[in-house]
Computed example of a mutant assay.
Amino acid sequence: MTRPSLDLTLYLIVGPSHVDGDPVPLVEDAVRGGVTLVQLRDKTSTTRAMVETARRLKAALAGTGVSLLINDRADVAAASGADGVHLGRDDLTPAQARAILGPDRIVGVTVKNPAEARAVEPGIVDYASVGGVFATESKVNPDAPIGLSGLRDMAAVLTAGVPGLPRCAIAGIDGSRAADVIAAGVDGICVVSAITRAPDPHQAARDLRAIVDAAKRDHERALA
């Protein structure tokens, strides 16, 4: 199996809690607008329905270079042919997910505090999603937002512990905040409602991608 593409620049999460009806047309529009990675997050459907949706999303993404990840469920990722899995603190361990999926799929993790960032296992974990950065209505989060200062601290911990590990930021990120988030030291942003609830998901993705690309160029110049 060819190693899937992993580009965190503009990472979209979709699922029944975020999209009214079929997510496939919205994802297709968003990818044409510049989304670089897609995650299916489904906490309510049956396993069989999740596998079917994942297969349809995977088919829709064929030829785009955009990978599909499944939230929590390594079994669904394996059964559907998705490109990997994203894990939270209460899910399978990265090592357990890797044992199910093998070496050629993506395993990502959420890190919410410095201790979790220091615990990321190099060679098993492919990327880290840091947050929540800001308050959000897309997901119930018992932890207080870490803010931009917390994001900078977490990025530094990841850099020290796992040099070169790709990382993105999540929660409450929109066009007004995206540039500051990138400047805090991450490779991309993970969004839900900024695209799924936009009147025009294609245009929303285009606008966000332009902001993130410009912010990444500015950040790289600042580090040069």
Rank of each mutant, 00 (worst) to 15 (best):
T2I: 15
L8R: 03
L8V: 08
Y11T: 00
L12N: 03
V14Q: 04
G15C: 10
H18L: 15
L26T: 06
D29S: 04
V31W: 03
L37D: 00
V38L: 01
V38S: 02
L40G: 00
R41L: 12
R41I: 07
K43F: 13
S45K: 09
M50K: 08
V51G: 08
T53V: 14
L61K: 01
A62W: 05
G63R: 02
G63W: 00
G65M: 11
V66M: 08
L68G: 00
N71I: 06
N71C: 07
D72T: 09
R73Y: 03
A74Q: 05
A79T: 08
S80V: 04
G81N: 02
L87F: 04
L87G: 01
G88L: 15
G88M: 11
R89M: 12
D90H: 11
A95Q: 13
Q96N: 14
Q96M: 14
R98F: 13
R98E: 07
P103D: 06
D104Y: 12
D104A: 13
V109G: 01
E116V: 09
E116Q: 12
R118V: 06
R118C: 10
R118E: 15
A119E: 14
P122I: 10
V125G: 00
V125Q: 03
V125I: 06
D126N: 11
S129W: 05
G131L: 10
G131F: 09
T136R: 03
V140K: 09
D143R: 11
A144Q: 10
P145H: 09
G147D: 01
L151P: 02
D153P: 13
A155E: 03
A156C: 12
A156D: 10
L158T: 06
P163C: 15
L165Q: 07
A169F: 06
A171S: 15
G175N: 01
R177C: 09
A178D: 02
A179Y: 12
D180Y: 02
D180S: 06
A183T: 13
A184D: 05
A184I: 08
G185H: 06
A194P: 04
I195G: 02
P199Y: 04
H202K: 15
Q203I: 03
Q203K: 10
D207W: 04
L208I: 01
L208V: 01
A210N: 03
A210Y: 04
V212M: 05
A215F: 04
A215N: 12
R217P: 00
H219M: 12
E220H: 08
E220W: 07
E220F: 10
